[in-house]
Simulated assay, not measured.
Amino acid sequence: MEKIQIETEFEVYKELAELPETVSKLMAQATKARLRAYAPYSNFLVGAAILLDNGEIITGNNQENASYPSGLCAERTAIYYAGSQYPKAKILQMALIAGSTKSKTTTPVPPCGACRQAIAEYEIKQDAPIDIYFMGETGTIMRSKSLRNLLPFIFEKEIL
């Protein structure tokens, strides 16, 4: 038997004011997108903003449906739009903000498993890491320099 040890590294910012200016602006766009989310069932609003290498900023938010599997998370809404409208552009950064309408969310909220896999696909496609910042409605912000920190064993096309 062999053991594998996996290490991940995150940066933690105590507040938005600590972020680099470009990331702060991206987080502000994610915050605006969050307010447009459609989440009448979970009451959990998520906003995403993506910075592309061509300077474009793409936003997305969660869109729920009474048939739960038919809804879509903010991260995938944004990343799929970016992929369809700017197929040659690389994703440099992604900012996420999430929180309940019923209580204050102060813990950083990372992408769900399905979103991690979708982000992984684009990170592999562009052969470059995606810088991901995520937070709750308020409080600390976490930074992962690559999706591989959040999902070390990526399901990728070489497996197929």
Rank of each mutant, 00 (worst) to 15 (best):
D131R: 13
A98N: 02
V23D: 05
A28R: 10
Q85A: 12
Y38C: 04
E123Q: 12
A82H: 10
N61Q: 10
V23S: 06
I57E: 10
K14S: 12
Y122L: 07
Q63Y: 06
L72D: 05
T101C: 01
G139E: 03
I154R: 02
P129K: 03
I57A: 08
Y41W: 08
S70L: 15
A17G: 08
A49N: 06
E11L: 15
C73D: 14
E156R: 15
E64T: 09
K25F: 00
T31L: 05
E75N: 14
G71A: 10
L147P: 01
K90Y: 02
P40K: 08
E137H: 11
G113D: 12
K157F: 08
L26N: 02
L26W: 02
K3Y: 01
P20D: 02
L45E: 01
Y122D: 04
V109P: 00
F44R: 01
L147S: 08
G139D: 04
N43M: 07
G71V: 12
K104L: 15
L51K: 11
I132T: 11
A128F: 06
I6N: 00
A98K: 01
A33P: 04
E158C: 08
K157S: 14
E21P: 01
I50F: 10
A37E: 01
F134T: 09
L96G: 02
M94Y: 01
R34M: 00
I119N: 10
Q29R: 15
M135H: 05
Y68P: 13
F10S: 06
F10G: 07
K3F: 01
S70Y: 13
I124Q: 07
Q63L: 14
